[in-house]
Measured scan of single mutants.
Amino acid sequence: MTFKAIINGKTLKGETTTEAVDAATAEKVFKQYFNDNGLDGEWTYDDATKTFTVTE
C-alpha cells in the first residue's frame, strides 16, 4: 500500500510517499525520515486517505 506524509515544518514543507504493508510500518519509516531531517511536531493520521500529517 502507498502511504503519504504531508510535512508542515518550519524549515521543510512538502509531501513524500512510502510503500508499506501497514500504517504502523509506514509511520516508522516517516518518523525516521523526519528525525533524520530534524523535524519534530504534532502527528495526525487519516486512515481513509492513508495520509500522515506532521505540523511543526
Rank of each mutant, 00 (worst) to 15 (best):
M1R: 08
M1C: 12
M1I: 14
T2G: 03
T2F: 09
T2H: 07
F3P: 01
K4W: 12
K4M: 07
K4R: 12
K4F: 10
A5I: 14
A5D: 04
I6P: 02
I6T: 06
I6Q: 05
I7P: 00
I7A: 09
I7S: 05
I7M: 12
I7W: 15
I7G: 05
N8E: 06
N8C: 13
G9I: 14
G9F: 15
G9D: 03
K10P: 12
K10A: 12
K10R: 11
K10Y: 10
K10W: 13
T11E: 11
T11W: 14
T11M: 11
L12H: 14
L12W: 15
L12E: 11
K13H: 11
G14P: 06
G14N: 07
G14Q: 11
G14T: 13
E15P: 06
E15A: 08
T16R: 13
T16E: 05
T16K: 12
T17S: 10
T18G: 02
T18V: 14
E19G: 03
E19S: 11
E19I: 15
E19M: 12
A20G: 02
V21L: 13
V21Q: 12
V21E: 09
D22P: 00
D22M: 00
A23I: 08
A23T: 04
A23S: 09
A23D: 03
A23K: 13
A23N: 03
A24K: 11
A24L: 11
A24R: 08
T25F: 05
A26E: 01
A26Y: 00
A26L: 02
A26V: 00
A26S: 01
A26Q: 00
E27Y: 15
E27A: 09
K28M: 10
K28E: 08
K28A: 13
K28T: 08
F30R: 00
F30H: 00
F30I: 02
K31N: 03
K31M: 08
Q32L: 08
Q32H: 06
Y33T: 04
Y33R: 05
Y33P: 01
Y33L: 10
F34Q: 02
F34M: 13
F34H: 02
F34P: 01
N35T: 13
D36F: 09
D36G: 07
N37D: 06
N37M: 15
N37H: 14
N37W: 15
G38E: 05
L39Q: 04
L39Y: 13
L39E: 03
D40S: 13
G41I: 08
G41A: 10
W43Y: 06
T44R: 07
T44C: 09
Y45G: 00
Y45L: 02
Y45S: 01
D46G: 00
D46N: 09
D46S: 04
D47W: 07
D47L: 05
D47A: 12
D47F: 06
A48G: 11
A48E: 12
A48T: 10
T49I: 04
T49A: 06
T49Q: 04
T49N: 07
T49P: 00
K50P: 00
T51L: 03
T51E: 02
T51C: 03
T51K: 01
T51Q: 01
F52I: 01
F52L: 00
T53H: 11
T53V: 09
T53Y: 13
V54D: 00
V54G: 02
V54K: 02
V54Q: 03
T55A: 04
T55R: 04
T55E: 09
